[in-house]
Each structure stands twice: as C-alpha cells, then as structure tokens.
Design a protein around this nucleic acid. Sequence first.
DNA 1: CTTAAAGTCTCTAGTGACTAGAGGTTCAAG
DNA 2: CTTGAACCTCTAGTCACTAGAGACTTTAAG
Lengths: 141, 141
Amino acid sequence: MSEFYSIGQLSKLADCKVPTIRWYEDKGLLPAPTRTEGNQRRYTDRHLTTLRFIRHARALGFDLPAIEKLQQLNGCCYGDHMEADRIAQEHLDDVRNKIAQLKAMEAELVAMIEGCDYEHSYKCRILDVLGDHELCGGEHK
Amino acid sequence: MSEFYSIGQLSKLADCKVPTIRWYEDKGLLPAPTRTEGNQRRYTDRHLTTLRFIRHARALGFDLPAIEKLQQLNGCCYGDHMEADRIAQEHLDDVRNKIAQLKAMEAELVAMIEGCDYEHSYKCRILDVLGDHELCGGEHK
DNA sequence: CTTAAAGTCTCTAGTGACTAGAGGTTCAAG
DNA sequence: CTTGAACCTCTAGTCACTAGAGACTTTAAG
C-alpha cells in the first residue's frame, strides 16, 4: 500500500471518475488533499474512505446536501444518529413514491401497447391514447 | 368556445405552466401560433390538442425527442404505428429497469434503517453501512 | 539525461426539462 | 383614460455530473 494516491489511482479504487472527484472537492464533500510541488493532488486512505461513503450514498439515491448532513453526523454524539435515521426515512419515502409513480406509468404503458394490433387491423392505440387523456386510466401525475 | 386562446388560457386548459408552453415552442414541439398586433400569442384548438398530447406523453415519462418522433408518426401511414409501438416498448423497458433499481435501493434502505436501535442501545447502522459497502447486500448499481 | 506518453491542472460549457426573475409592453375592464 | 393583470424577451439557475481545450507534471523507457 502506498502512502499517497494520485487522483487517477483514487478514481480506480473508489470507482469514481476523475472529474467527479474534483467536483466533490469543489462542493466541499471531499476535503482538499495536499499537493505535490507540481500542484497535483495526493490523497490518503481517509480520502478513500470518505469518497466511498459518498459513492455508496449516491448509489442509494441520496442527494448531495443529504450526504453532507450524513457526513457531519458521522462521528458526532449518539443523539445525532436519530437525525441520520430521519434523513434515511425521508429518502425511503421518496423512493417509495417514485416506485409507485413508475408502476402507474408501467400499467398505462402496458395497456396502451397491448391495445395495439397492427398485425391484423392496423389499429394502434398509442397515438390515440396519448392524444386523449380520457382513453387511459387517467391515474398518473 | 372562443376562437383563440391567450397563453394564459391555454396554460389553464392544458394544465401546463406558461413558460413551459413557450419553451415547447422554442424546441419545435408546439407550432408557433399567430400573434396579435401587440405581439402576443393566440392559440387555436389544434394547439390545445397538441399540447395535451405532449403533457400526457411527458406524464408517462417519454422524453422530448421521443415525443417529437411520436408526433411525426401521428397522422402518417399505418406502418409507422409499429415504430410508435417500438418507442413505447423501449420506454416501457426503461421504466421497468428504473423500478427494479429503485426496489433494490428500497430494500437496502429498509435493511439499514431496521438495523438501527438507538432507543435501547444507541446503535445506528446507517452511517456504518454507508461507510462500508461490504456491510450491505451490495447488489445496487 | 532525454524524450515521449500518460496523467494531471484549471476553466468553460453542455446535458434535460424546465423554473425564476428582471425590465419592459400590451390588453381588457371599469 | 387609467389601472392592473397578463404578456413579451432574455438571462441565469437547478442537479450531478460530463466533455473538451490548452497547458503543465510525472513517470518509464532507452
């Protein structure tokens, strides 16, 4: 294990593109690392841990402000974990709402596509349904 | 029924914000209407129909390039309906993929939140799990 | 030690589908 | 004729990056 990582090495270790790393630094999510004499970034294992935290939270759909809060709570006193829980709960609700919306979309799309029968009658409901909201279930947003 | 609608009237009839209507015109999805002497837009029922088509397709998650294609197919010869079907099928696949992804997220979030028990032991897994990918199922993107 | 290639630097602009606001003009009702 | 709501254009901001230009640094080979 080397003492320091270049941004390219960190990129591979954390599975995160190079410009994205710089962008997290810019936004204050990843601490600015030391630089070489030639001004290149050199990262430590702590940076790697932090970056993985960010990437994992992103993969779960948390947005950057939420991740910043979660980071601040990390390493704080016990009561703050309830705040982390609240953030996660709220996000879970969002995710469930999105799933419900997408399922409504899915149902309508299926109905629309199944209504088509251009093989035998050149009848296609897609364009009709899109043109007239009354023709569909009408339960989407 | 009036002969022409102002942009504000169209906005209410199609449940679409005024700047959004102008924006669709800018992008070529909604034809430019005639103007009054004072340069204000005046729309017909055809515009209303088109705008409702767009809004309905957007509500179903189609993106603007797809909507433009669907519009072009509308009123074309019969074979083009198969193309409309293809676009809808493709979109349906996207929607189903998103649902699957969100469900994976949901499962991991639930596991994370349920692991918490700060009431009795001040133990919270959220920050730990986010920090160490090995602690979760690890099946997300 | 030299050189070439790969990596890195900063900065700007673009993505999608809008939304918000500034500053000015026109319309419709009373 | 006045007033105020609605309308006009144009610019900039949203989110989380991604792409590219043009210049500089590092590293490995010879």
